[in-house]
Write a protein that binds this DNA or RNA. Structure first.
Length: 344
DNA sequence: CGTCCACGGGAATTGATGGACT
DNA sequence: AGTCCATCAATTCCCGTGGACG
């Protein structure tokens, strides 16, 4: 019953975007100057996860490229590439393509991009609030014709630690707020994905609205649930997803995401996770003490605090309970801890 | 008030790597 | 080929601030 599994991938970009017309218009407005050969307005998209921010950004760039041939564009996930150098390197790769030295200094990278950028270009900075070195925004501003689309969960002040005289010249022309999808919009999205990726009649209206209801306005979760449901059904030899499987599919999809996340943790993060799995609700100092025992090459508390702990929190694996100053670390609950499905 | 704890700025160190110079 | 220097990422070390609490 699964005709095309790629339809359910996180990076799948549908041919038309459901329920985000006004957002699309704002972003394409921001990019419009490129059509006349000028630098676009920087813009900033914010809202919770799974509400189509990245999709809209990518779709807007795609639309632009249908109007204007070969607009140089780059995509950077600042969560992975959070240093100045890493960001510039990624941009150089996407924008300029081809050969760049294995390691290059930031200055060299800026030169490389500047020299090879002919006409205006646009960079998508996903999870831009995770950027450690906001100086890079200044670097981008220095490159003629380059503009960016920043994406974040909350509205953040990106320019906090930049020189005021400089920041006043870097402007964010558009701020686009994304709110949660309604259930009917999620249902519409699911319906289209099903039509594209599954056999005919694989889902009925009832199943779709059930998934939509259970996924709390998060399209990513809904789509993952649809994929899991389809897989479960086809394993039973069915050509349609029966509604009795929906609930399991939603929770399994949740577990799947979690397992995938855990498998990406490094040894330090893993050790922390293990410690918390054994003993929940520790304060930072206790957590560190346990971690130090468990890990055979521990890093300092300072470093843990700076990198690994925030990472676990960001991954939504660890929850921090603040009770009058003292903070306690907890694992985030899973609905079905007793069983998790084999990995994808 | 003194202590404990969390937070985070900032300097310093280490190790890899690549380029320039000899 | 060998030496030296610059850059960068990762990590550590040191420390001041500030809240909570007894």
């Amino acid at each position: 019953m699964i005709r095309d599994g790629t339809v359910f991938d996180d990076d799948h970009l549908p041919t038309s975007i459901v329920g985000r017309n006004s957002h699309m218009n704002e972003v394409t407005d921001a990019l419009a100057p490129i059509q006349d050969g000028f630098r676009a307005e920087n813009c900033f998209l914010f809202g919770p996860s799974g509400v189509g921010k990245t999709t809209v950004a990518r779709a807007a760039v795609r639309e632009l490229r249908q109007e204007v041939l070969d607009v140089p564009h780059a995509y950077v996930n600042c969560w992975q590439d959070y240093t100045r150098n890493a960001v510039l390197e990624q941009i150089a790769r996407d924008l300029v393509g081809a050969a760049l030295p294995r390691t290059a200094s930031t200055g060299r990278l800026v030169d490389l991009i500047t020299d090879n950028l002919h006409g205006p270009g646009v960079v998508i900075l996903d999870e831009v609030d995770q950027l450690r070195e906001t100086k890079v925004l200044y670097d981008l501003h220095e490159i003629r014709g380059l503009s960016w689309i920043g994406i974040a969960n909350r509205e953040v002040d990106l320019f906090a630690d930049l020189d005021d005289r400089i920041t006043s010249r870097i402007s964010v022309g558009y701020r686009v707020h994304f709110d949660s999808y309604g259930e009917d919009t999620i249902a519409e999205i699911l319906d289209r994905r099903a039509r594209e990726g599954l056999g005919p009649g694989a889902v009925n209206e009832d199943v779709v609205s059930q998934i939509a209801r259970l996924s709390e306005g998060d399209a990513r979760r809904a789509i993952a649930a649809l994929r899991v449901g389809a897989r479960m059904a086809s394993r039973e030899g069915l050509s349609a997803i029966p509604s009795r499987l929906v609930e399991d599919a939603v929770t399994d999809a949740k577990c799947e995401v979690r397992q995938k996340t855990i498998s990406k943790l490094n040894t330090h993060q893993h050790a922390l996770y293990e410690v918390l799995a054994e003993e929940d609700g520790l304060i930072q100092k206790e957590l560190y003490a346990r971690y130090e025992e468990v890990h055979d090459d521990p890093v300092t508390l300072r470093y843990l605090r700076e990198n690994h702990l925030p990472k676990l929190e960001h991954y939504n694996l660890v929850d921090i309970e603040r009770h009058r100053g003292t903070k306690r670390y907890h694992l985030v609950d899973v609905d079905h801890p007793e069983q998790h499905p084999e990995h994808v």
